[in-house]
Write a protein that binds this DNA or RNA. Structure first.
Lengths: 181, 181
DNA sequence: CTGTTGATGTACCACCTGGTACACCGGCCA
DNA sequence: TGGCCGGTGTACCAGGTGGTACATCAACAG
């Protein structure tokens, strides 16, 4: 039955999130989820496959969390962005954030799967932000700033510089204050 | 004699740069630099110490490369930033860039040494940029954008989005009357 | 009842990791 | 000459890695 496997997958994702990285040995992972390396291999075939499935599950979860419609239409861009910032840098999100950055690193280290993950995240955010900022170039820039801010936050633990920069960038709608959707 | 050690350290740094990460086993590293694990331990005492020394050496090298005075006073901010971007994302710099990001990751994974490295890099860039952008908040934001752009560039290999965003952020000098800080 | 099937534990494997023990060798000093 | 001393190779170690072989056990089908 695949229910067992599904539940196990969920536990694994939770363990990876808690660890903030995919670099967790099967033995350790098994201990964390109350199973055994034997069973992990049994259900997922190989470590690589397990990683792929975990990434997929994480992708789903993020897709649910950041789907278009999370914010009411007409919300000012600044409010959307600061809300996203608060949520992203909340203490409970630190694990997911680190895990995502870990996958991102695998992306620039060559993993095709990880690259796809990254691109999908980008797409998701663009999809979300373009509802509140019609200028694609501005969205693109905002996204990069957000990523840089996350990076700085992760290392320093300080949310303020990121917030300041994001607020600064969304201060005035660059051309007109009329937001239509 | 410490000359041997110094030369070996240089070779190690080169190997780490080529690998784009510090996660290189002593055996592999030894092969790359034409030595042996035995000798690496002999000269550096332990792997950890070797890593620390490599980080130090990398820090020195970056300090030389990005010291204040790299650009003539009065250069427009946009020119400075785009020049830095071209240089940073050039193909030859990819290894260093990845290595730096690897160290950064160690920073957010808890390594105190790596955190210091990150902060020193920040300081360096602030020192450099504040000559061309007197507003500290703007420098802070610019730096975060730069980091995010680097991240996106590393994963996608595309330099253009980063360049566009950086140019956009340095478009009109904020001395204009319509932007108040 | 018997046979098959899937879940599970234990023991094991080869390989890689940082690091060490020890022997050897060449050059330098007395 | 002799002896010491730093550089070096080889073999080795314990611990960890992903993964497998095999046996066991329960449930379910015939």
């Amino acid at each position: 039955m695949s229910g067992d496997r599904d539940q196990l997958l969920e536990s694994c994702l939770a363990a990876f999130i808690q660890a903030g990285t995919l670099d967790l040995s099967l033995d350790l992972l098994a201990k964390k989820v109350g199973s055994s390396k034997r069973m992990l291999i049994h259900y997922f075939g190989s470590r690589e496959n397990l990683e792929v499935m975990v990434m997929g599950r994480l992708e789903e979860r993020l897709r649910d969390r950041f789907r278009v419609g999370s914010f009411p239409a007409g919300t000012p861009l600044r409010a959307v962005v600061t809300a996203l910032w608060e949520q992203t840098t909340s203490l409970e999100s630190r694990g997911v954030l680190r895990l995502i950055m870990d996958v991102t690193r695998r992306g620039w280290s060559g993993s095709a799967r990880a690259k796809r993950f990254y691109k999908e995240q980008q797409r998701l955010w663009i999809e979300l932000l373009k509802e509140f900022q019609p200028d694609p170039a501005a969205v693109e820039a905002l996204l990069q700033l957000f990523q840089g801010a996350v990076l700085a936050y992760l290392v320093t633990g300080n949310r303020e510089p990121g917030r300041r920069a994001l607020v600064g960038m969304t201060k005035d709608p660059p051309v007109d204050e009329n937001i239509q959707r």
